[in-house]
Design a protein around this nucleic acid. Sequence first.
DNA 1: CCAATTATTGGACTTTGTCTAATGATTTCA
DNA 2: TGAAATCATTAGACAAAGTCCAATAATTGG
Lengths: 142, 142
Amino acid sequence: MNAKMYTRDDMIELLRKHGINPTHQRIEIAYALFSKQEHLSADQILAIVNTKHSETSKATVYNTLNLFVEKKLIREVIVDPSKVFYDPNTYEHHHFYDVVSGHLTDIDAADFKISGLPQLPAGVITEGIDIIVRIRPQGVAA
Amino acid sequence: MNAKMYTRDDMIELLRKHGINPTHQRIEIAYALFSKQEHLSADQILAIVNTKHSETSKATVYNTLNLFVEKKLIREVIVDPSKVFYDPNTYEHHHFYDVVSGHLTDIDAADFKISGLPQLPAGVITEGIDIIVRIRPQGVAA
DNA sequence: CCAATTATTGGACTTTGTCTAATGATTTCA
DNA sequence: TGAAATCATTAGACAAAGTCCAATAATTGG
């Protein structure tokens, strides 16, 4: 929620901190995500980084986003069957998903009081828990 | 988990109960889902209903699954960016998702003790809460 | 500065899912 | 019953998201 201002230099530092070589394209993609502080899809990011003149290819955007996810710089949010959203906020949190507008909003993990967890199947470890609260504007029909 | 045996007649009754005209194809698709009691994707269902000889088109499978979801006969499960799973179990429950094998398992809603819910944004209603516990076999690397 | 590695690229390709226009099946009710 | 209206199915074209590939470009380390 805090509208922290990021510079491209911040991005370089951030990438290095995650063991990612800070190339031009990667800096721009990171900058798009972190300066907006929003949940963007790959095609939105592609559009943003190419607003002035085409600078980054589709392949690079996908490569880079997957790399960022792998290096835990960002998180994938899977709520819409048709596209993945990328979330620059890696602090533990969950999501409201407006099924009408497609808009995603953060929920602080602390706002969920989960006092009991289900028994894990044998031999597995937990990767993470994703909670999606699907919402709809009052009065808008299903 | 209970391995209830379903007949095609059960499917006809079930479809009628949900206001769905029980056609041949719809009966077969419902039967595939309910007799397996598993989470199937559209292409798996297409394969199942056409095992003996081709009887149902891709368009019909998609039409029918969307209709079933709309009529709340089944539920969509969105965990994998590449495909939707359909879940014949409409009882309130959540999911384990094995990120390595792609396998889905049910979690009874009662096994989660959620004692606090986040404040909803103004003017919206809740459609439902989806909880995905992402798991991975112990020892298998990320 | 050269060689080796690493990154980017356009475009072909794959997969999931939708759309369309035509056909086929059912229902309605005069 | 039988003609019209409605509803369901179909093949195949299409769309969109994402991957793959082989070639080129940039970067890095010695």
